[in-house]
Write a protein that binds this DNA or RNA. Structure first.
Length: 936
DNA sequence: AGCGGAGCCTA
DNA sequence: GTAGGCTCCGCTG
């Protein structure tokens, strides 16, 4: 090798990582895989472990085409650890013969492949890997250790990562911390504390991962734990002190030796050429047909699948479905699905789509996260049974050539952006979001089957396609998991064989079309439901897509500071709680807490959970906190740890790399009543009530020169109640702009408006809320902490003063019972299957829902209409300085440039006030600030 | 790894 | 008493 070549070789390290394969760990794992155990050659030589290990190498080659793969196996016989500790691995049974007999063949095959094979006596494979990893790390060579053994986590550095090739789980420094709860440099301490039953390494009795992590979090190292052993309370503390003497030995045993003498260093080891003749002989001998076939196709692994796919590529394949057995109501079995590989067929479809007026389509992507998803293919359907899939970026090895993605999208763009050509889809907001990343603004979004089903009946079914196909078409679709697998090994769509993928994708479009044909006519029979669908939900889809794309800005530093101080306080609280309990326990475990409180400390049980266990719910602890110290500590701990884990720790992790902002998902077809819901993250439950919680809103900030504007509807549900019941007293109170809770108090307690006490107002407020929730005297009594008798009196008084409300509620119950559903002002329906239930509890619950749904649902309708008019106005301004960023049920949040914030806010308030016309005024109130807390 | 329960955050 | 979502634990496969 010339100097130049050596230099180039070094330079190329970046793209050719060192792959250190822990052969022995895979050998044992593969040997125990059930479906491999059956494998053997005709003359009885077992080959399961051989196959398993070689599959793993094959997969590594595929994942790291440029990787420099080194195989390391344990040598026979004892190692230096046995000298240190004779009992080491004494519990291990001898290696079974049918495994032993597979080792030599594996070694032979690996050698014939040209891969360096290291089997070093007197040390374990771990030590050889550790040594090479350390050398590589020092040389700055990126290194991947392929292993199933968690002990290797101690070797992870910024340059050294782990991959478990059997489960496809990778781990870097952060991954180790995440998985184990300690840093890589604490792994040895962690292992030493826990010990290892299998290897016969002693540790601290009863110390598992939880305890080890806790101690190391507190004292950093094993040394630290040993130095502070006196401070550890309880039985486990005794166990620790009993183990003190032998912990250093455990530490030594768990330490991977990183200075094994080797003939070649990590920088020198490299693969040679495969010996094809030798491989052919070995594969033939052990009857490894698949590997033999691969060999015939040259170097490229998995080229075996090419021939079939390529013949399809030459002239577009037509695949017919094979699910005939399950088909009943629709004849999906006779469907003809095209998989389009060439321009001619694509153009044929394009013409058909253009002429169709309405077509169903679906995108296939690499991720369910719309911010990360990349387009893999698109599918279309024009009439039931006729669908096509256009694969674009399937990139598994041996994937056939596909049409150019940019070319296809350029052809489709006018079609997808046409308002005249109507689209049918299932959850089109997702497709719209994905397409927006390819500079396509999806328009003509007229029919979303998910929303059709939701408007038709929000509670009859979940609204995912599989459920809809089953309910409306009596057809079992091919599930994503059927084609992609599940769990850690799940493939992304680009990795799926095109014929399988094509059938799945085309069926999606086909089924979507058929669903539309089944659901839409049913929905359109009721004009009010059709109008909710057409005038509210479908137009809202694009508004939500836009808000999701916009995202919100958060200040991660503010949250990190909060996390830190919360963490400190939580540590203090934990120590305090352990002291009070007299032993260490998990504060977050209701079960453990219940044992401590009610069994060990003998605190009286106040309330039980539905399953009969003593409850440790907040209200219970609050009551106990008056008499005992521990519940108080627990309460503070719960509140703070919720804030830390859900918000201050989590939100910064969810910030998009692309935009630096937080992008939630709004779900339009989840709630029974018509509200939106929000996930990943849920932006609709950001704390506000507690002092600590409010601070989280301070991290929701405006960009430079902008302000956060929050506008919320005041008392919207009570106003709707006034409108619906047309109760004179209630309508008057709102028309005259009174403080509604105060007005209610004045009526119930028969005092003048200005004589209402704070306490009376508080009671009235609870009554008003109770009203919205379908109040019972029982619930009210609990809320106000008064007797049931008195609660009943309040309620009677209320209905006496507001008789229209009573009438309305009675009418609603009756209507629900007769029709089986209730409606919002705009005709959105909620079916109540339990309204005539025999079970009194269920019937009562359904009645409360019946009372609540028209109010909650109408409020949802109103804010949705407001969002539509606000969006329309913002679009018309064509001004990037105004952005709608969030919706929280009765509140809209905006980001507005400071130069125009005043007048824009006024305009938005007006738009919201006039979103609909009720018999009482609709009042929106605004706040302006540098962050959400200030604005609220 | 996936699930239910308990608990707690919001309107 | 209404409507949601998320995190934790602890069990089960």
């Amino acid at each position: 090798m010339t100097t130049l070549e050596t230099t180039l070789d070094t330079l190329s390290n970046v793209s050719s990582p060192l792959i250190l394969v822990d052969g022995s760990s895979y050998l044992f794992r593969a040997y125990h895989v059930p479906y491999l155990q059956a494998l053997s050659t005709a003359d009885g030589q077992p080959t399961g472990a051989i196959t398993g290990v070689l599959n793993m190498f094959r997969s590594l080659k595929k994942d790291y085409p440029n990787g420099n793969i080194i195989a390391i196996f344990d040598a026979k016989g004892k190692t230096f650890r046995n000298d240190m500790y004779p009992e080491y691995k004494a519990n291990r049974p001898p290696m079974p013969d049918d495994l032993r007999s597979q080792i030599a063949p594996i070694h032979d095959i690996i050698t014939a492949m040209g891969l360096p094979l290291l089997v070093i006596p007197d040390v374990e494979a771990d030590d050889v890997i550790g040594t090479l990893a350390k050398q590589a790390d020092e040389l700055g060579i990126e290194t991947v250790i392929s292993t199933g053994d968690k002990d290797m986590a101690q070797l992870v550095t910024p340059h050294v990562t782990l991959i478990n090739t059997m489960t496809d789980v990778a781990m870097d420094v952060a991954g180790v911390s995440e998985k184990f709860g300690v840093r890589p440099d604490q792994i040895i301490d962690y292992l030493a504390l826990m010990g290892d039953k299998v290897d016969n390494i002693p540790g601290v009795v009863k110390c598992g991962p939880k305890t080890a992590v806790k101690w190391l979090a507190e004292y950093e190292t094993l040394e630290g734990v040993i130095a502070n052993a006196d401070k550890v309370k309880g039985k486990i503390g005794e166990n620790l002190r009993d183990a003190l003497e032998q912990l250093p030995l455990s530490y030594q045993l768990a330490t991977i030796k990183c200075d094994v003498e080797l003939e070649q260093t990590a920088g020198e080891l490299a693969a040679g050429e495969p010996d094809v003749a030798a491989l052919t002989e070995l594969y033939t001998k052990y009857e490894l047909k698949r590997l033999l076939a691969d060999l015939g196709n040259g170097d490229k692994a998995s080229a075996a699948t090419d021939s079939k796919a390529k013949s399809g590529a030459a002239k577009s394949a037509t695949v017919s479905t094979e699910s005939a057995a399950e088909v009943t109501a629709v004849e999906v079995a006779q469907s003809q699905y095209d998989i389009i590989f060439d321009k001619a067929l694509f153009n044929e479809w394009l013409v058909k789509l253009q002429g169709s007026g309405t077509f169903a389509f679906d995108t296939e992507t690499t991720s369910v996260d719309y911010m990360k998803a990349e387009l893999v293919g698109v599918s279309f359907a024009i009439e039931a049974g006729k669908a096509a899939y256009v694969p674009l970026t399937h990139d598994y090895e041996g994937a056939p050539e596909q049409l150019d993605k940019d070319w296809v999208l350029a052809q489709l763009k006018p079609l997808l952006e046409s308002k005249i050509i109507k689209k049918i889809g299932q959850n089109l907001k997702y497709d719209a979001n994905v397409l927006s990343h390819y500079d396509i603004e999806l328009q003509g979004i007229d029919f979303d089957t998910m929303i059709e089903s939701y408007c038709y009946n929000s509670v009859a079914t979940r609204h995912n396609m599989d459920a809809l196909a089953l309910k409306y078409l009596d057809y079992k679709t091919v599930h994503f998991e059927d084609v992609a697998g599940k769990g850690a090994k799940q493939l992304t769509f680009n990795q799926i064989d095109i014929e399988k993928a094509g059938h799945y994708a085309a069926e999606d479009a086909d089924i979507t079309l058929r669903l539309h044909q089944a659901i839409f006519p049913a929905l359109a029979q009721t004009p009010s439901i059709l109008s909710v669908f057409t005038d509210i939900e479908m137009p809202l889809l694009a508004v939500l897509a836009k808000m999701e794309q916009t995202g919100v800005l958060i200040d991660s530093d503010v949250l990190a500071d909060q996390s830190f101080s919360l963490g400190q306080r939580l540590d203090e609280l934990e120590i305090e709680a352990h002291n009070l309990a007299g032993k260490s326990f998990n504060l977050g475990s209701p079960k453990q807490l219940q044992e401590i409180l009610f069994e060990e400390l003998k605190i009286p049980v106040i309330k039980k959970t539905p399953k009969g266990a003593p409850s440790t719910a907040e209200e219970v602890l609050q009551e106990l906190a008056l008499d005992y110290p521990l519940p108080k500590v627990i309460l503070e701990n719960r509140g703070l740890s919720k804030l830390k884990s859900t918000y201050t720790d989590k939100l910064p992790l969810m910030v998009s790399e692309k935009t630096g902002r937080l992008h939630t998902s709004y779900h339009q077809a989840v709630t029974a009543t018509g509200r939106l819901s929000s996930t990943d993250p849920n932006l609709q439950n950001i704390p506000i009530r507690s002092e600590q919680g409010r601070k989280i809103r301070q991290a929701f900030i405006a960009p430079k020169d902008h302000k956060i504007v929050a506008i919320d509807y005041s008392q919207i549900e009570l106003r709707i109640m006034a409108h619906l019941s047309n109760d004179k007293g209630l309508v008057n109170a709102f028309s005259e702009g009174k403080d509604i809770h105060k007005a209610t108090a004045a009526e119930i307690f028969a005092v003048d408006l200005d004589e209402v006490t704070t306490d009376q107002r508080r009671s009235a407020k609870a009554i008003n809320f109770g009203l919205i929730y379908g109040m019972s005297a029982f619930g009210l009594a609990k809320q106000l902490n008064i007797g049931r008798q008195q609660a009943q009196e309040y309620q009677d008084k209320y209905f006496q003063r507001y008789p229209g409300v009573l009438t309305y509620m009675e009418d609603t119950r009756q209507q629900a019972s007769e029709q089986g559903y209730v409606e919002t002002i705009f005709g959105r329906r909620l079916y109540l299957p339990d309204i005539n239930a025999k079970n009194g509890m269920r019937k009562k619950a359904a009645e409360r829902a019946a009372i609540n749904a028209p109010m909650q649902g109408t409020a949802a309708d109103i804010i949705k209409k407001a969002m539509l008019s606000v969006h329309e106005w913002i679009e018309a301004q064509n001004d990037v300085r105004i952005k709608m960023t969030m919706q929280v049920h009765d509140e809209l949040i905006f980001e507005i440039h400071q130069d125009i914030v005043e007048e824009t806010t006024q305009k938005l308030v007006t738009l919201m006030n006039n979103a609909v016309e009720l018999s009482v005024p609709l009042i929106a109130e605004f706040g302006i600030g540098d962050n959400w807390d200030e604005a609220h």
